[in-house]
Simulated scan of single mutants.
Amino acid sequence: MKTLIIIIHPDPENSVVNKRWMEELNKYPEKYTVRDLHNLYPDEKIDIIQEQLLLEAHDKIIFQFPFYWFNCPPFFKKWLDVVLNHGWAYGNGSPYKLSNKKIALSISVGINEEDYQQLGRYKYTLKQLTAPFELTFDYVKADYKPLFAFYGTEHQLSTERIEKSTLDYISFLEAL
């Protein structure tokens, strides 16, 4: 079954890493359903039913986004709020439509990895900072998996690092 990749990047055309990842994913339409939310919903009016049907049709779901201000883009939060609604994703009598579906995050991070350590500049790891996503997906009974991250998009970006991250990303997806 195909993997659903939901891209939440406000400006993917001017992104180096996310744009490259999207290009690679689009080479394999038989493996990946790639959805660029900002492109699909420029007015941010989400087709809730369409999104829910796509989630139901896939066993693996990846949310790909840039990490800034120690969080996800606001459109991702909005998407979570309206798509994972009571009676569909959770709640008494809910069918828990995401139950046992593998879900993971794929994140591009501007800051270097060493800054996201207990003794680093920001005092917390990326895993700790993304704990609310883990809790959210546990709440809806999904099978939350460890995240994939590319650190240092604001520093030392080389073609070699980007290409290696692209190969690593595809390997990460295949191993889910």
Rank of each mutant, 00 (worst) to 15 (best):
G91R: 00
L80W: 14
S108W: 04
P95Q: 05
D168T: 04
F65Q: 05
Y90S: 01
D138A: 15
T125F: 00
F148D: 02
W88P: 05
I6D: 02
Q52G: 05
L4K: 00
D59F: 07
E30P: 04
L25Y: 00
E23S: 13
R20H: 13
K97Y: 13
E56K: 14
Y169M: 09
L126T: 03
K60V: 06
D115W: 10
L40I: 12
S158Q: 07
E114C: 10
A89R: 02
A149I: 03
L25R: 00
Q52F: 07
E154N: 15
D47R: 09
A104C: 06
K97V: 04
D36K: 09
H9I: 08
T130K: 08
D138I: 14
L119T: 15
G152I: 08
E160Q: 12
F137I: 02
P74H: 09
M1D: 11
N85C: 14
L176K: 09
E160M: 09
L98P: 02
L167G: 15
G91W: 01
E154L: 14
K102E: 03
N39C: 13
S99P: 08
H155A: 13
N112H: 12
Y144R: 01
K123A: 12
L80Q: 15
K19E: 09
F133I: 02
F65Y: 11
Q156A: 13
F75C: 07
L80R: 14
T130Y: 03
Y139V: 07
N100L: 12
K31S: 10
D47M: 06
Q52S: 08
R121A: 12
K60P: 04
L147V: 06
D143Y: 04
A142E: 00
D81N: 07
I48W: 05
S99I: 10
C72M: 15
G87W: 00
K102T: 05
L105T: 02
K2T: 10
H9W: 01
N18Y: 10
A142W: 05
D115A: 14
L173M: 07
K141H: 11
W21H: 08
T136A: 12
L55A: 11
H155M: 13
K97T: 10
W88F: 10
I107D: 00
F76R: 04
P146W: 03
L119N: 15
Y90Q: 02
P10F: 02
S165Y: 03
E113I: 08
E113C: 08
